[in-house]
Nucleic acid binder design. Structure first.
Lengths: 338, 338
DNA sequence: GACGTTGCTGAAAGCGCTTTCTATCTTATC
DNA sequence: GATAAGATAGAAAGCGCTTTCAGCAACGTC
């Protein structure tokens, strides 16, 4: 394994010149650079990462801390997000280093990663409302970008989608079609996107003079099982919903099963609108009845956040971005049955 | 940000002693150690990772290189696998560093990661038959564990599940129930698990004297869409299958839709067996008709591979493990209709 | 011919740890 | 009381790179 010294000796040059040649400094003679590059290739030289980090103080890596709660569900969307993130960062030669930590101790984990120089910044996933991680990282003045929002008192970088607007429009659509009893299958109550969607729905309801209906609103885990259970329950109510809003395709899958098993038809008896993160393996347009959705590809979030974070690390200031969400109307929405 | 020197000065000790105290060497006085530990906590000292790596030559990190093909689908199972892996490694204070690379250049990426000292070992995912990565890493004599197998000429560490046996047993079950025309929805033809399952099915077929049926066997992408398309095609054949074997739950989801849209009933008209990786968000027991499955939780693979890899890095030799696969019989399998 | 310039390269000082080797002080041993 | 052994701590040499500062030609300029 050739190191810089070996390469320099081989070339009869100093380590300084070789280092400069390889790192694209202007002050090195063109011929010398050529020679150095050729020799580096020939000796298969690769600069040691730890040494370089130690000398430059930069890790060229960003961190992700996954919640390690054992009972917790692993979001299948995460793979798609990660794909977008990793590809974009890889193109800039930045690694992503991942670890897991229980939520209670995650702040300590972030601090350790920051203060040991393992990473130059973080991507914060699954933010909760008033997430303590954000305030802490702001105190540390360490770069990070949040995937979602969390309502901090100071400015911070985030990429979010217009959850509020999307679910307001979805609700409006249902209202315009004449629905009065609209069920909601939302995410965990303290997840920020749940809060945003809740408020979008409420806004639309108000503008149509539709009261809240607690019995038809559920906030909890986003599994197929939960979707099925809660939808079944709602359908057995004396006044069942004629439409349902789902916060994820997985919930919609469960709702679909409940509707079907109740002997009802999607779009005919019950309208369904789901949020769609644009997963590649399972598409909402391919449901038995193609789903009307609010759509925002989650992979784009990964791509964009990668850019925002490298900008931030390079000192280019806080950015925020709220991506628009498309409302795509398909066969699962129709006026309520008479 | 306190460093070792500052801490040593503060204590009036040498860096050497402080370092030893903090790293659990026996040759340091018990009182001294206490003092050092207290001061370290007080000054919030954390050893710099890069410096430590440079000094010890160990990265305390393992690498994962994701295939970066843009058209490629991101496997939702990957999130579950990663969860198991990351948690186990985090408990041992080992980071996982991830990057993405196109398949053609992935070998170069592995080499770069290995020779720059970024990681101490690799987890190889999605192995193909005779995967060139394995031979290359063996040549480099760099530690790695494969998730799956790939048929190299030299011994290497892997964790696999008994794909061959599982699909043999699944096929046998169908044969015993009296099925003669068994369709197969398998994965990409060059993925190793596809090969293994193919051969398990063939073995069971032979033992029941059942000929191969190319028109009823499909190998390709594991998406809901593909499952639907191919199952629909098979059902429109003059002699449609009375049973279908699916290599993933996502394919089964598509097959289910096709069967339903053909006006047929799962378990009644068409038996379905799927492989089940035990994803937490969508469970095969919760299909409208609970699915008979070959089951092997993919998260366990992550957990176990983490252990195998750290063992390997610590010089504890090559291990191989083939996990058994349960065959869980539920309502989706029955004798063929008369 | 003295004097800035410009272009290129080398010496050497870190970056923050670990670890070997050495030094000192105690204590046990005869 | 001399000596060996044991316990503890420090000095210093690296680990492999980057980067500052200095140096040396060669060159044009007055």
């Amino acid at each position: 394994m050739a190191n810089l010294k070996a390469l320099a000796d081989h070339l009869g040059l100093s380590q300084a010149t070789v280092s400069r040649a390889l790192n694209g400094y202007e002050t090195v003679n063109a011929d010398t650079r050529k020679r150095v590059e050729a020799a580096a290739r020939q000796l298969n030289y690769r600069p040691n990462t730890a040494a370089r980090r130690l000398a430059t103080g930069r890790a060229n890596a960003v961190g992700i801390v996954m919640p390690a709660e054992d009972g917790r569900l692993v979001d299948p969307h995460f793979a798609d997000f990660l794909a977008g993130l990793t590809r974009t960062l890889a193109a800039r030669d930045i690694d992503i280093v991942m670890t897991a930590s229980p939520r209670e101790t995650s702040i300590a984990t972030y601090r350790r990663f920051a203060s040991t120089g393992k990473v130059d910044g973080f991507v914060i996933s699954f933010p909760k409302r008033n997430d303590p991680r954000i305030e802490d990282l702001l105190d540390l003045a360490f770069p990070f970008v949040v995937h979602g929002q969390c309502g901090a008192t100071r400015p911070y970088s985030y990429y979010d989608i217009d959850n509020e607007g999307a679910f307001a429009r979805a609700t409006e659509l249902l209202c315009q079609l004449g629905h009065q009893r609209i069920g909601v299958l939302n995410g965990e109550p303290d997840a920020m996107f749940t809060v945003q969607r809740r408020s979008g729905i409420a806004r639309a309801r108000r503008s149509f003079g539709l009261p809240e209906d607690p019995a038809l609103t559920v906030e909890g885990p986003m599994t197929e099982e939960a979707g099925f259970r809660e939808m079944s329950r709602m359908l057995s109510l004396p006044l069942p919903p004629t439409a349902i809003l789902c916060s994820s395709m997985i919930l919609a899958l469960g709702a679909q099963r409940a509707i079907r098993e109740a002997g009802l038809g999607i779009g005919r008896d019950v309208s369904v609108i789901s949020h769609d993160d644009g997963l590649s393996s399972l598409k909402t347009e391919n449901f038995s009845v193609p789903l009307t959705v609010t759509r925002a590809p989650i992979r784009q979030a990964g791509t964009r956040i990668a850019g925002m974070l490298t900008d931030l690390i390079d000192g280019r200031g806080v950015q925020t971005h709220t991506a628009p969400v498309d409302l795509i109307v398909r066969g699962s929405t129709a006026p309520p049955p008479k």
